[in-house]
Nucleic acid binder design. Structure first.
Length: 885
RNA sequence: GGGAGCUUAGCUCAGUUGGUUUAGAGCAUCUGCCUUACAAGCAGAGGGUCGGGGGUUCGACUCCCUCAGCUCCCACCA
């Protein structure tokens, strides 16, 4: 393609869809087992009804970088995408949608409701996966899975039955976290405790048989007095010992309840006297059991007061709290109200205030199966990046509680437990199987009387099998895919689901495959806004990722996401990051336009400056490749990107291309052009995992290897499947020598700027060697970049010249009357001061006997070198100063 | 109430087992340039007593103690 057909600026819109379809067409994303080394990532399945947010962007960009790089390293890369049925969240959405249509879930049968839910899933499910394509995600879409797919569903049921048969799953009445909005129990992990500004109500309970005598209790939840069954004091609290054996009357309710004594009570807190409501508080529940108290449940499932007591029936718990406070005050039972901060549990999914509730649920005993999962993380069989999360993980695993796995919902895997009318329960895969089992106990039983449990399983009870079940490894562990891809390589996730998901996947992996599910866990941070707030829909502080892609291009956004997000660190997101990414795209684009526009000459000789520039960049490239490899090995993707960014922008564009580019309208020799194109190719390959679209486009504009080297029958491959660059041995001394040249060039540029000398006016540079041999290797480059008509060695100082010193070599640029002696003098004096400071510090070290005797040889040699360098520099500067005077 | 981690330039972060001249990077800032690849750019420059205090050491951003501030996780104190 000729340059006049190429846009002046990179325009991503034109090319992203083109290349994405091309990649799909060529089936580059699809993987089948073969004899290569597998590299596999299973995508953390987003909620099927979700839309793409910034967290997904970050997470999936990282996964795509890892997958694309592995693919280019000739591993068999497989990225399995999919979605999660997210039972609570999806069911809540479907219920809300039906409500809008005037349909109440209560009026629907289970089958009717599920029909609506599946319709909703078909309509909205998968939007998020389509959005990921815009980002460039190179997932194996043929392997897309859904946690309620038939095979995954069956795997969940099989696992439930197996765990039940092993005695690890049990059913029992426990105090659980009840979500009055979703109308289901949730696990401990699904409850988020937040500090809430609330009130502490002090209430008087009249003592039975004593006139005008009361005990005062303090509570944050006055509405629960309806369910009180005792008042409790500390057995050694002298203030209350006289109440032993007495009773009190619950205000308004007028029920008589005993005064009991228990060491649980904190004498210092509140009034030192506690009301006991066993049905609605976990502590009270335990005290209730201990003291054999009755339990009075006062709530309906939706958080309204039931009719048991006859007061406030049907009213919401929070309305009643206000109302009862007023009523208590009116009747004289309210002593005072204090402001008080306490922690309240909220439902992770619905944000409703959790109600502790006694109910019959299914639980998984975690104690024993968690142990091996703790070990594999602590001994780094599964590696966490960053490793600091090992601590958090250990703490949770060592204190793991039984997992409430039943949910009072319909959307999900239905619990395979079946009941006979007499209450007998069996766990079986089908109703028929259950019937057979039940019939052995009860010959009279008819299959119509067998009833399946109404509840479904926690969503995480299906996603904990994800890395296994996407390959059908539960039902069919000997299948080819499972044996090849599992254990997967890397998991990219966020710390907030460390327990929900990651820990449980490791547990399930060890229990059901006897292997770890993945070797590395990369934990990203949270995407936050500029003010440090978590991005959320309710705050409206989250940009629409697709808008960002439209504005900055997918590659620009990817770079923006990755630039400042080291593993485990939060990403303070700012659109200017995407701008930086877009600018980088443009920089690469323009470098392409330069290289692409050159006329080639087969006759001209390769200039000296080009030869040495090529040697230098080759060394620099390999040096940086080694560094980038190291960053990747340590999962430091931001650092890998930044190193690549600087290599491309600074070393390649700002230095190398300027060093070799021919004068305007002059042709370039073919050797230099070819080697430059191959450097460009390597850089594009290095960039490709981060910036897939622009690199594929430029790769094709510049022409693949075949065209470039005049070999027309080279296969016409795409960059996506080309080979990722590897570092080779390089000449480090070239890099060090060039650094000196860079200093000289910078000094000359500074002089040009200070003296206002345009680049087109040629200068002369004189070099006077002092103590060391000046480096001349890059003289041709210095001459070219600084537009020097002459570069000459001299043995005497030069008058009326601007000077600078690099190492201990003096450089002079004759400028005639442009020399400002005072300014030169000031410059020299400040340099002198620096050198003297350095000299002093080295001298004081070296004159310290204990330093000389105890520091290692190397350090002392270095210090001596510093000292002599400083001394030399001081001498040179002093001589120059003499001359100025 | 326990536990973990963090505090280095205006912002976001590097800084490997204490010793690489005067602690680095990107962005931002300032100055000068529309120099035919690129103003979404080029060139140059400034900016930090490494949170405070103490200690160990010949030597501390790095190790120890202490104080302060921030963050996260866990926990049934009304």
């Amino acid at each position: 393609m000729k340059n006049d057909e190429i846009a002046l600026k990179y325009s991503p819109q034109d090319i992203e869809d083109k290349w994405y379809s091309h990649w799909l067409e060529k089936k580059y994303f699809h993987s089948e087992p073969d004899d290569r080394e597998p590299y596999c990532i299973v995508m953390p399945p987003p909620n099927v009804t979700g839309v793409l947010h910034m967290g997904h962007m970050l997470n999936n960009t990282i996964q795509d970088v890892l997958i694309r790089r592995a693919r280019m390293q000739d591993k068999n890369a497989c990225w399995v995408p999919g979605t999660d049925h997210a039972s609570i969240a999806t069911e809540a959405k479907v219920v809300a949608k039906l409500k809008e249509e005037g349909i109440d879930k209560k009026d629907l049968s289970r089958e009717e409701f599920l029909k609506h839910a599946w319709e909703w899933k078909e309509k909205h499910g998968g939007i998020i996966l389509e959005q990921l394509k815009k980002l460039g995600a190179s997932c194996d879409w043929k392997r897309t899975k859904f946690t309620m797919d038939e095979d995954l569903y069956e795997s969940v049921i099989d696992v439930f039955i197996d765990l039940y048969n092993k005695g690890l799953i049990y059913r029992g009445v426990r105090m659980v976290n009840w979500d009055p909005s979703a109308l289901t129990a949730v696990s401990d992990e699904e409850v988020i405790h937040k500090e809430i500004q609330s009130k502490l109500y002090h209430l008087k309970y009249p003592i039975v048989g004593e006139k005008d005598a009361f005990v005062t209790i303090a509570t944050t939840r006055p509405e629960t007095i309806l369910g009180d069954t005792a008042v409790c004091c500390h057995p050694e609290d002298e203030r209350f010992l006289h109440l032993k054996g007495k009773s009190v009357i619950i205000p308004l309710v007028n029920r008589e309840i005993p005064i009991i004594f228990d060491e649980y009570v904190d004498r210092e807190f509140g009034t030192g006297c506690l009301k006991i409501t066993p049905a609605h508080d976990i502590n009270d529940y335990h005290i209730g059991i201990k003291h054999k108290l009755p339990s009075v449940d006062i709530f309906n499932d939706n958080g309204t007061i039931n009719e048991k007591i006859g007061l406030y029936a049907g009213k919401d718990r929070f309305d009643v709290r206000k109302e009862i406070a007023v009523d208590l005050e009116k009747s004289g039972y309210l002593v005072k109200v204090e402001d008080y901060v306490n922690k309240v549990g909220f439902s992770e999914r619905t944000n409703a205030v959790i109600e502790p509730k006694l109910s019959l649920q299914w639980f998984l005993n975690m104690q024993d199966i968690a142990k091996p999962a703790l070990d594999v993380v602590m001994n780094d069989t599964v590696q966490f990046h960053p490793a600091k999360f090992k601590n958090t993980y250990r703490h949770w695993m060592e204190n793991v509680k039984d997992w409430n796995i039943s949910r009072q919902l319909w959307w999900g895997q239905r619990i395979p437990a079946f009941y006979a009318p007499n209450g007998e329960v069996v766990v079986a895969k089908t109703k028929e199987e259950a019937f057979e089992k039940l019939k052995m106990e009860n010959g009279e039983l008819r299959i119509e009387d067998v009833r399946q449990d109404e509840d479904v399983l926690d969503t995480w009870f299906s996603s904990w099998l994800w890395p296994i079940s996407v390959f059908d490894g539960i039902r069919n562990p000997d299948n080819k895919d499972f044996k090849y891809y599992y254990p997967t390589s890397d998991l990219v996730s966020a710390p907030d689901i460390l327990f929900f998901w990651i820990a449980r996947m490791i547990i399930a992996g060890l229990e059901y495959s006897h292997k770890i599910p993945f070797k590395n866990v990369y934990l990203t941070g949270m995407v936050r806004d500029k003010l440090g707030r978590k991005m959320s829909k309710s705050l409206g502080n989250s940009p629409d990722p697709l808008d960002l892609i439209r504005i900055y291009g997918a590659d620009g956004v990817r770079v923006g996401m990755l630039l400042t997000s080291p593993a485990g660190n939060d990403l303070p997101f700012d659109e200017t990051l995407c701008e930086q990414g877009r600018n980088f795209c443009n920089k690469i684009w323009n470098a392409m336009r330069l290289v692409n526009g050159w006329e080639v000459s087969n006759t001209i000789e390769q200039p000296e400056y080009a030869k040495i520039s090529i040697d230098w960049f080759d060394a620099k490239l390999n040096e940086q490749l080694a560094i980038i490899e190291d960053h990747f090995a340590k999962y430091r993707l931001s650092d890998a990107l930044m190193a690549t960014y600087k290599l491309v922008w600074d070393d390649f564009c700002s230095w190398y291309l300027e060093m070799i580019k021919p004068a305007y309208l002059q042709p370039i020799d073919s050797d230099t052009r070819l080697i430059t194109l191959s450097f460009f190719d390597e850089l594009l390959q290095l960039l490709h995992p981060f910036m897939p679209f622009i690199t594929e486009e430029i790769w094709h504009i510049l022409g693949v290897d075949g065209k470039k080297f005049g070999i027309e029958d080279e296969p016409d491959d795409d960059i996506i499947i080309s080979e990722f660059p590897k570092s080779e041995v390089f000449d480090e001394s070239l890099i060090v020598k060039f650094e000196i040249a860079q200093q000289i060039i910078t000094e000359i540029r500074t002089i040009r700027k200070e003296k206002n000398i345009p680049q087109k006016d040629a200068l002369t540079l004189f070099v006077k060697k002092n103590n060391e041999q000046p480096e001349t290797l890059f003289d041709s480059v210095i001459q070219k970049l600084c537009n020097l008509e002459k570069l000459e060695n001299i043995s005497k100082k030069l008058e009326n010249a601007s000077t600078f010193i690099v190492k201990s070599t003096e450089y002079f640029i004759p400028l005639g009357d442009k020399i400002d002696k005072e300014a030169e003098k000031t410059k020299l004096l400040s340099e002198l001061k620096q050198a003297e400071n350095l000299l002093h510090s080295t001298q004081s070290k070296l004159s310290n006997e204990r330093f000389v005797s105890s520091a290692p040889e190397q350090v002392i040699t270095l210090e001596r070198k510093k000292q002599s360098d400083a001394q030399q520099k001081i001498d040179v500067i002093n001589k120059q100063l003499e001359q100025l005077n």
